[in-house]
Design a protein around this nucleic acid. Structure first.
Lengths: 343, 343
DNA sequence: CACCCACGTACCAAGTGATGT
DNA sequence: CACATCACTTGGTACGTGGGT
């Protein structure tokens, strides 16, 4: 037998039940200074008894400072999910509230951002790997925007992104000092971050001297595309002794693709991923990869957002923040041994 | 040089600029009947020119009917993401707005649900695979609750879930008519939905007669655990000729686990997944699996939510809705051939 | 006469229906 | 009758004022 759904009690009702004025009740519940401790406790007790919950819409409307940040993200990417989790943490610890708005096939970034603006978010964080997600032009002169995962900041947009160049250089340095010379790179031209990573690869190959030649294959950013990349690697004139991949999904695909074709990792080929997303451990392989500190990235993004919010006049220029990933050496890489195949 | 951030124009400002009253301006913009077409167009034009966007907080507060549904979900599960995408679609087409609230390590379902209630959502959809997520007792007598993905409805909670029993029966019927007799099931005791699926398996095995014996191994719900399940399958006295897995992640793990151990799918073993989530195609293998129509599930969940919202008095009893999955036969299964291994 | 505490009330930005003209 | 206006509503917040020791 379904109960009659009780209409939510309002602050006025709580106040009446407690025998105080609405204004005083508000102060008691929000923790504002003023009320006597006895009164405060009494009002709180009454509110609890009545099951009172403040109406957010009314509160946002009345309050001057809303302390609310919105985030636009895609539901398809595991890395985004990690960032969102970290953003919840980062905003909460700074006394901000986080509002989510997802991008889907029939819900453009534009629309997602508008929802957040209409909800009076004071800043928008855009979690993105694809550069064209930045088509939120309408929002630009309304609230500060911080992009996470892409370094295309502009005169109006801040960015927090990983230093792909330095990351890949780090991986290359490690592989080279482990004796590898035939190192390939699996890129993902469809993702914006890949350019810096490839440049890091190429610069490291150049630094290694003339007998090292760059080999770039299409890797893509999914497990599936990684599997296909493994095929391409095997079809090369010479099988590389090591591969650096655009991200973990791709690296995992390469590893499984090679295994299926009878090649062992790391015995025959070393594979290094990028992100240290779930895939680096979820897939059962302890993968060598470049670790991104998601908590740190989220914290920097929120800090940048609040910085620009608090300089209300708009006198602060957007920042471009780079975070260096750190190499986590695990089981998908090893020194270059004599056991190498030559075709 | 960052521009001065312009304060958002209010309806009052639009009205003044258009030379009409606030009330009339409101009617023009919301599409309420009354205003002359000429006036309406004029006000709309002025609003556009000023970049007016309605304040959601004020709108929600003033409006009697909010038409807003909230969803609590976990960021860790790919299937949840698919459901959310479908929910956006389903709510939008019914003139409702969807609010997201994620569960994380330090954000309990309870807290996530409270955020939605405080935002005056009229119903809450809980996307969940784990039964203990249903600890939102405080919310129960405030708004209708619909659980997606678990069949534990109650006197106060509706549910929409897939019919695991019927689904697995369907897969079994297909495998058995393809000549398979040694069929194993990989379960996931940690997930709530697994029980029905296993019962479907056992009933199908019983129906097949005495010479068929049930073989249940721990499969888990992740790719990693699936890989380990492959090992367990190989250690059995007799390798099964077919395996039905709790979900796609697990099935994919089993397939790759078998491949790594030199066994081919479907030549040596047929594998059937469950969900038809991204993994069924993303991993590069066209997997035979039980397809869940996410759009349909989302639509049913929203319909149930609106049904209970609209019976404002609470006189409607919660429903328990079952959706049958449909078998998608693809490349990970085949008729039982003579080529089988016997140990 | 301070001082503390509580009160009343004017907002916030929109929506709604009765009341004009 | 068609169209526009006004006064009031929504739930809370913030601040100026006043009543009591």
């Amino acid at each position: 037998m379904p109960k009659q759904r009780a209409p939510r009690p309002t602050l006025a009702q709580v106040a009446r039940a407690a025998g105080v004025s609405v204004g005083l009740a508000s102060m008691c519940l929000t923790g504002a200074p003023g009320p006597a401790e006895r009164t405060r406790e009494h009002v709180r007790e009454v509110a609890r008894r009545l099951g009172y919950r403040p109406n957010k819409a009314a509160s946002v409307l009345a309050r001057h400072e809303v302390r609310r940040i919105g985030v636009v993200f895609s539901l398809r990417q595991a890395f985004h999910a990690q960032v969102i989790e970290a953003l919840y943490q980062a905003t909460a610890s700074r006394g901000y509230e986080l509002l989510l708005s997802a991008v889907t096939d029939d819900r453009a970034p534009q629309e997602a951002a508008e929802h957040l603006i209409d909800s009076r978010c004071q800043a928008i964080i855009l979690v993105s790997t694809h550069p064209d997600d930045i088509d939120v032009s309408a929002a630009i002169d309304t609230v500060p925007i911080v992009i996470v995962g892409s370094n295309r900041s502009s005169a109006a947009i801040s960015s927090v992104s990983v230093d792909g160049w330095a990351g890949v250089r780090q991986a290359m340095l490690y592989l080279q000092s482990a004796g590898h010379t035939r190192i390939a790179f699996a890129d993902a031209p469809e993702a914006s971050g890949t350019v810096d990573r490839r440049l890091g690869y190429e610069s490291a190959m150049q630094a290694a001297g003339t007998n090292a030649h760059s080999t770039i294959v299409h890797g893509g950013e999914t497990f599936q595309s990684g599997i296909q990349a493994a095929k391409r690697l095997q079809l090369l004139a010479q099988l590389p002794t090591a591969v650096v991949a655009h991200n973990d999904e791709c690296a995992a695909g390469i590893i499984f693709g090679l295994k299926i074709r009878g090649l062992q990792v790391p015995e025959h080929v070393s594979v290094v991923g990028f992100d240290d997303s779930g895939f680096a451990w979820q897939s059962g392989l302890r993968m060598t990869t470049l670790h991104q500190d998601v908590a740190q990235i989220a914290a920097l993004a929120v800090d940048e957002a609040t910085r620009r919010i608090e300089s209300a006049a708009g006198g602060v220029r957007p920042a471009e923040i780079l975070v260096s990933p750190s190499l986590r050496i695990r089981d998908s890489s090893a020194p270059c041994s004599a056991k190498r195949l030559t075709a």
